[in-house]
Amino acid sequence: MITDAQWAELLHTRATDPGAIGEAYVNRRRRERLLSERGTLFLVAADHPARGALGVGADPLAMADRRSLLERLLIALANPDVDGLLATPDVVEELLLLDGLHGKIVIGSMNRGGLAGADWEIDDRFTAYDVPSIASSGLDGGKMLLRIVYEDPYTIRTLEACARAVSDLAGHGLMAMVEPLPYRRDESGALVLDRDPVALTHAVAVAAGLGVTSAHTWLKLPAPEDPSALDATTLPVVVLGGVPSVDVADDLTSWATALRHPAVRGLVVGRTLLYPPGGDVAGAVEAAAKILRGEGR
């Protein structure tokens, strides 16, 4: 938990000492290896707020309380099986000031401009970390969202920007985590995830070919019911949490199934673990860690 004194100090530092953030980046104790000793990677994700996606379940503002979000992240990061964090600069920097990221992998979220529900949502412009800031801040890589809608011309802009970021991150020897998701518009014009395994397979093939090299590219994918999408690449894959199911057990089962595939190296999960039914963050994180350790699958 964050004490009242820690919270007051964080707010005071934010207002009076912006240079402390740069110092915190420099002083972060980095981990030497990206993968754990088991060869896996388990990250908690908290880049949803920067895209205006604050809802969890029936609560449209679940992630809006920043103190609560940070407390939940610190609980998750305290689990020794959690390797690190995926987040935007504001969240990363708050956790740095709270000394919550020493010895952890930190992946900076890059394109958050496709605001949830916006007319331009598919135009996922890079509005958070860029490659120079990821490299100079000593982060371990950058993550980019690539929603592919064949009927939307904004897709090509995001494709081009992601390709450039993949190339630039590789030039620094840093991970490029690409999240390719096939989307379509329903009868009302709203964007919905296309769960057709063929569509996901196409998205995987497109993402794998981005940039001048794929040497440092990882893919962040939903757990597919059909493994054909995972068979479409040799790139390392992490399974995303996505929108939480009504029953967390269903999520755990789908992750366990995906983790059996040799290309899948780990999990990157946010809301499902940070806002579980009943509020037991530590218990939800440990349940996912057991799945990753191979217990019960």
Rank of each mutant, 00 (worst) to 15 (best):
G100S: 05
A176V: 01
V248W: 08
D119W: 13
D99G: 14
E94M: 12
L85M: 10
R14E: 10
V178G: 00
P262I: 07
V264A: 07
E93T: 11
S214W: 08
A288L: 06
C162Q: 01
P18L: 02
G84M: 08
I291K: 13
H48G: 07
D140M: 15
V285L: 05
P222V: 12
A165R: 00
A15G: 11
H12T: 11
G55E: 09
V198F: 10
L69E: 06
E295A: 14
S228Q: 14
M1L: 10
L230Q: 05
L159M: 07
T158C: 07
I156E: 01
E23W: 02
E23K: 08
A170L: 04
L41N: 09
D196P: 14
V269Q: 04
T3A: 09
V82S: 04
P132L: 06
S254Y: 03
G270L: 01
E9K: 14
V166H: 02
L35M: 10
D226F: 04
L273H: 06
T158E: 00
L259P: 12
D130P: 06
T233V: 08
A62I: 09
G22M: 02
R164F: 10
R293H: 13
G84I: 08
Y183I: 06
A78S: 15
K290R: 15
K220N: 04
G57E: 00
G173H: 00
V166D: 02
Y275G: 13
L181Y: 00
W218Q: 10
